[in-house]
Design a protein around this nucleic acid. Structure first.
Lengths: 209, 209
DNA sequence: GTCTATACATCGATAGAC
DNA sequence: GTCTATCGATGTATAGAC
């Protein structure tokens, strides 16, 4: 039991240091991108020596991989918002409006998340596995969840739920991308309410046949 | 006249060399990103010495700026496809289907264009002016053109043409991004025809009131 | 004007002290 | 295990020959 305790303490210490390194790596990589981030900077920001960084993560590429996989699996999982439990009884148009508004609100203000998206896309050519980690851990669950919602509301009369989900998500992502990531807010302004209203109207219009 | 001729010849030569440098810079920057591209590599790919590159473009940042602005203004302007002139007489649903299909076809196969998008987004935090050049020269004209089309078809009964355009473009861009840029093709497959059909159906459904 | 050669800083990674 | 010190390679940028 004493042995176990000691072991746990050691592991905790190690994990604490590994976490400090990951935290420093996050700040630097998200701010400067992969190539422009030096291991010296990561070590200094993490408060350890460069040799310690290497002893924990092997090399720069492995550290970057560990960081991004970690962010995709843990940190930004919360970016996916589920329709609340009471939503089953509410009007679909209202549920979708609230969902879209929440997604936009969360995404438009979170600079860290925006930098995460920037680096994932920017490095998706050179680190395809990291882009796929994003797809698997963030995009795919969100799509599945929304698809399930649409399929559970046959009164919406949507013949292709999977495709509708892409319209829904694509509209919101493209808006965040143009207005925030690409700094288009003042060049091509558009109120988010107009977008959300138009989008949810299109989906719930019911084609009146 | 002789003087002028000489001057023109000189300028042509200079411009030819500047073009060669830009061509080399394009290959390297689009393949490796900004930070990971060295001026040595650019010079070698362009077939000139490094000093010549610096004498033409000052420093690395200026060269990158010149290149991306050039690509946004000239090379990828063609990525924007106009509805054909006869389209005024055709069914809107058919026009939109053909337009969406064309946009997807052009975007999904063009690796150079995909790398251009990758670097624009990836560097949009550190080079906001370049992201805005993309918005001004590529996104904004496309949006304006489509908005004009929707406004000229009142029978579609679209209360907010600007917002509808964002839905249209966003759906297509998000699809290209997930399937191609982020290598999600095999993880979350979806036939482009289903997407295009669903999208154009939504817009032309006419709400049957 | 265009080249070669080089200055000077910083990179990723490791050896060796403790 | 974690540090300091340092290696060789490579980066941006420029000086000087022609």
């Amino acid at each position: 039991m004493n042995k176990i305790k000691t072991k746990n303490t050691q592991r905790t210490k190690s994990e604490a240091k590994a976490e400090a390194i990951l935290k420093g790596a996050m700040k630097e990589f998200l701010a400067n991108g992969y190539a422009a981030t030096s291991m010296d900077k990561v070590a200094k920001t993490a408060g350890v020596s460069k040799a310690t960084v290497y002893s924990y993560f092997g090399d720069k590429e492995s550290l970057f991989n560990a960081l991004i996989q970690n962010l995709a699996k843990d940190k930004f999982q919360t970016a996916m918002i589920l329709p609340e439990s009471e939503s089953a009884e509410k009007e679909p148009k209202l549920v979708l409006q609230q969902l879209a508004t929440k997604i936009l609100e969360n995404g438009m203000k979170d600079r860290t998340f925006q930098n995460f998206i920037r680096i994932i896309i920017g490095e998706s050519g050179r680190f395809p596995e990291l882009a796929q980690a994003y797809v698997n851990n963030l995009a795919k669950p969100a799509i599945k969840m929304l698809t399930q919602y649409f399929k559970s509301h046959p009164e919406l009369d949507l013949p292709d739920a999977e495709a509708i989900v892409r319209v829904f998500m694509g509209t919101l992502v493209y808006y965040m991308m143009l207005q925030e990531l690409m700094h288009g807010k003042d060049i091509i302004p558009l109120e988010s309410d107009r977008l959300v209203n138009t989008l949810t109207d299109l989906i719930t219009a019911n084609k009146g046949k």
